[in-house]
Design a protein around this nucleic acid. Sequence first.
DNA 1: TTGACTAAGTTCACTTTCAAGACTTACTAG
DNA 2: CTAGTAAGTCTTGAAAGTGAACTTAGTCAA
Lengths: 153, 153
Amino acid sequence: MRWDSLDREACSLSRTLAVIGDRWTLLVLRDAFLRVRRFEDFQASLGIARRVLTERLMLLVDEGVLRKVAYQERPVRYEYRLTEKGLGLYPALVALVHWGDEHYAGKKGPPLLHRHLTCGHDFRSVMTCSECGDAIDPREVKPHAGPGAKKRA
Amino acid sequence: MRWDSLDREACSLSRTLAVIGDRWTLLVLRDAFLRVRRFEDFQASLGIARRVLTERLMLLVDEGVLRKVAYQERPVRYEYRLTEKGLGLYPALVALVHWGDEHYAGKKGPPLLHRHLTCGHDFRSVMTCSECGDAIDPREVKPHAGPGAKKRA
DNA sequence: TTGACTAAGTTCACTTTCAAGACTTACTAG
DNA sequence: CTAGTAAGTCTTGAAAGTGAACTTAGTCAA
């Protein structure tokens, strides 16, 4: 199967990965969450090939994850900012970071901590159920076909 | 920067993506969470090139995300099962799926729903703070250097 | 008014990875 | 013997990524 047909699959993960699933995009978004906004800054921070960065930023803008905002005229220069849709990726990103913290942090501990300003503490994210509010154990979840499902094997 | 040096970055996301960040791996893991376990089943379900599937499964086994379990002798055949470490990726996966549900489900709704067996309802995942238990707004989080940090620009 | 500088790309030559399908191995079943 | 099965392995052309140089549209300083 070719990658560019993934967005036609009846699976929300496939559709999501068609947008943010390549090797660099999540790192671009990590930087965006850390307030990186300009082409040169992304490039310097990531060491990504410029052509690839151009492509990824364009795709993210097309998809409405980032938007271009002019920060000067003459010459017009744009920076890239997260949209609301982009902010919606935060839980996924944090979950990936915390998995890395747990399994790949050295003896010294994680390189980056996250402080919850509302309560003032460094936190880990906990996945809870929107219905009962309890923390979710993967073994207590049963996936089943939803309204948008096609029949599948 | 080359992809294979990402695991040396002082960032838990880089280290995570060095393991599961390529185009196919999360789809392999989605299938694993849906109880797919055998080479032929992954291959048929994903339409992934066989060589790539072989590589990905080997990497995931090396990293301790999956483990090989013999399910028959003569000839010995193995299947791939999630380890505890692998189960730890569930929150990230669900967050990505729900983002896809929100932004890419058609008019009919999401193709797959998740039922929380403990409470009996279909749910969305909510990211909450391990310290105060409240739902987290990305704008109320401040990242700061942790014990494993290197100095950076 | 030339020359240096900046930010955001674009182009090019080269390398790596991927896609699709055929082939291999080690068995079983008839 | 022949066919079938599961899990790879190999091959070849196509696609994508890499790194460095180049381009564009402007500023500022001498």
